[in-house]
């Protein structure tokens, strides 16, 4: 966490590897964050309202963008670091629901940077980060599974202490809204399904090492968008019927009360499927 003073003062566009953001992203526990592009941060319109959420706002912003004055630094160093993280987190929450931010996060999703669903019947479905609140300092980050559509706590305590507001409540749902082809199927092994779709992203990852970030970004966007117009047209009205569930048994026999609850849950499911199919028939 303590970074040499020199690193900050030399930070500039040409010296990218020493930037505050790259330092932040490489810190242990920050694996869920993606890089917010400098253009986005430098456009003040995108930061509207954040000056009231972060104390020492301008200096924190200067620190993030590696423009902090050397003299101020020593006095404020400690507190400024906290404010800079808060500011970066809040910008991050806005960034990942932009078109470019979404595609950055899709890269991470496909690399399984957010881990896999702990639910056995989800067959190691990759997860997405989500907040339970958009207000900072309320709830830590959680993980959303697109297969069982539930939220889980991160396994590691170093992720359990990250603020959920830095990812926001909308992110995974907006992602699946914009890219319906990425909605995971309710059955079948994950890897086979992923392999069918992964083509574009493998190419994107290969380009990582090369320069020309801007052109790459554009290409990736079009690739992801292109793949979005494939399988995504299928109806999801009755997908729940395919979902597997665990059935508790004693010596092979179902338990009375649990079986009753599961029947009730499945009747509730069937009612929704009927409702959705009726709506579909109307259209």
């Amino acid at each position: 966490m303590l970074r040499g003073v020199d690193d900050v003062s030399t930070g500039s566009d040409s010296d990218y590897s020493n930037s505050w953001i790259s330092w932040f992203l490489s810190s242990k526990g920050n694996e869920y964050f993606c890089e917010v592009e400098e253009d986005y941060i430098l456009d003040r319109f995108n930061l509207t309202g954040l000056n009231t959420e972060v104390s020492n706002y301008s200096q924190a912003l200067d620190l993030i963008t590696d423009n902090l004055d050397d003299e101020i630094q020593d006095e404020l160093r400690g507190t400024l670091d906290v404010q800079a993280r808060l500011l970066y987190g809040l910008i991050h929450a806005r960034w990942i629901v932009t078109a470019r931010g979404l595609s950055k996060m899709i890269e991470k999703y496909k690399r399984v940077d957010f881990g896999r669903c702990p639910r056995v019947l989800c067959q190691s479905q990759p997860l997405l980060p989500v907040g339970l609140s958009d207000v900072p300092y309320e709830k830590s980050v959680k993980l959303y599974c697109g297969r069982c559509e539930d939220v889980y706590s991160p396994k590691s305590s170093r992720h359990g202490s990250i603020d959920g507001a830095y990812f926001g409540t909308s992110f995974p749902h907006l992602l699946f809204l914009v890219y319906p082809n990425l909605i995971p199927p309710k059955v079948g092994p994950v890897d086979a399904a992923a392999a069918l779709r992964n083509g574009g992203v493998v190419a994107g990852a290969g380009a990582e090492a090369e320069g020309a970030r801007r052109t790459r970004r554009v290409r990736e966007d079009s690739e992801v968008e292109g793949s979005g117009s494939g399988v995504g047209e299928a109806s999801t009205a009755s997908v729940a019927l395919k979902a597997e569930r665990y059935r508790p048994r004693i010596y092979g026999f179902q338990l009375h009360e649990t079986a009753k609850l599961q029947r009730w849950q499945e009747a509730t499911r069937d009612r929704q499927v009927a409702r959705l199919e009726a709506i579909e028939d109307l259209n």
């Binding site: 559509e149 749902h173 995504g232």
Partner: peptide, 25 residues
């Protein structure tokens, strides 16, 4: 869990609407 986009519940009619809440209800 109730999924939301910008504070609004994701409607079940949308393709990415909730399909699995029954499992936990």
């Amino acid at each position: 869990y109730v999924p939301r986009i910008y504070g609004f519940k994701v409607n079940e009619r949308s393709k990415n609407g909730p399909r699995m809440q029954w499992l936990r209800m």
